[in-house]
Amino acid sequence: MRKQFSLLLLFLLPMLVLGQRVIVPQYISFADLSIKVSGKAQQEIQDKVDALHCNAKYFQKKVDLATIYFPVIESTLKEEGVPAEFKYFAMQESGLIGDTISRSNAVGFWQFKIEAASDFNLHVDYQVDERLHVIEATGGAAKYLKRSNAYYKNWLNSLLSYSLGLDGAKPYSTAAERGSRKVEITEKTHPYVLTFLAHKVAYESFLGKVNASPVGTAGFTC
């Protein structure tokens, strides 16, 4: 009886621990930045985190993919001089599904359109599409982010430029943010950035753990 109870406890303990709701903190570290999150922005990010945790089976599949691909993505980012935490950005862009195609015909792990792929030395023709190759695509994304960061000197604004373009992100940046290691996020921050922070918060606590999925909808409503 005691042995059966011990085995049951061993099985349930990871679920009890990991089934707790992940709370978005007031301060988030990303790359070389210390990000202060306002109360309303915290709630917006929290809603996104809860949505990512809502389906435990789907979440576990994404953790399993991250276990496979993140080491390769981290290594490639580091080789290119880009913070390894951008691995969560690949999760946001494609869900780590290599052959994902968006409505705008962006393709692959990092969702490159064919014109941008050519700009960053990704080979695309009828036989080969390097947007589908995790190492090549990550190298291309890293080059894009480095180019943006050379202008913005702020990795969060460089991330936003990935969606809006180098010029498109300018209205969302300030001169004070250039080179600053402290950034404030509010509810007025572009949703693309809030979604990235939600992916980082949602996944980073569960990677490398057995039975990593949150249990059901522990403590929140989907």
Rank of each mutant, 00 (worst) to 15 (best):
A41H: 13
A41C: 14
A41N: 08
Q42L: 10
Q42C: 13
Q43T: 07
Q43F: 07
Q43S: 08
E44W: 07
E44H: 11
E44V: 13
I45D: 09
D47P: 11
D47F: 09
K48Y: 10
V49W: 04
A51Y: 13
A51G: 06
L52S: 04
L52Q: 06
L52R: 06
L52I: 05
L52G: 01
C54L: 04
C54A: 13
N55L: 05
N55P: 04
N55Y: 05
A56P: 11
A56W: 10
K57E: 15
K57M: 15
K57G: 15
Y58I: 09
F59Q: 05
F59H: 04
Q60M: 04
Q60W: 01
K61N: 14
K61S: 15
V63M: 04
V63G: 02
V63E: 04
D64N: 11
D64H: 03
L65E: 00
A66E: 02
T67F: 05
I68M: 09
Y69E: 08
Y69V: 09
Y69W: 10
Y69L: 12
P71M: 01
V72N: 11
I73R: 02
E74P: 14
E74G: 10
T76A: 06
T76K: 11
L77Q: 00
L77V: 02
E80D: 15
E80R: 15
G81R: 00
V82I: 14
V82S: 10
P83T: 05
P83I: 01
E85K: 03
F86E: 04
Y88L: 05
Y88S: 03
F89Y: 13
A90S: 11
M91I: 06
M91S: 05
M91Y: 02
Q92H: 00
Q92Y: 00
E93Y: 01
G95Y: 02
G95I: 10
L96C: 01
L96T: 00
L96N: 01
I97F: 15
G98P: 13
G98L: 08
D99N: 11
D99T: 07
T100Q: 09
I101K: 15
I101N: 10
I101R: 11
S102N: 03
S102E: 02
S102Y: 00
S102D: 02
R103E: 12
R103W: 00
N105E: 08
A106L: 15
A106W: 11
A106D: 07
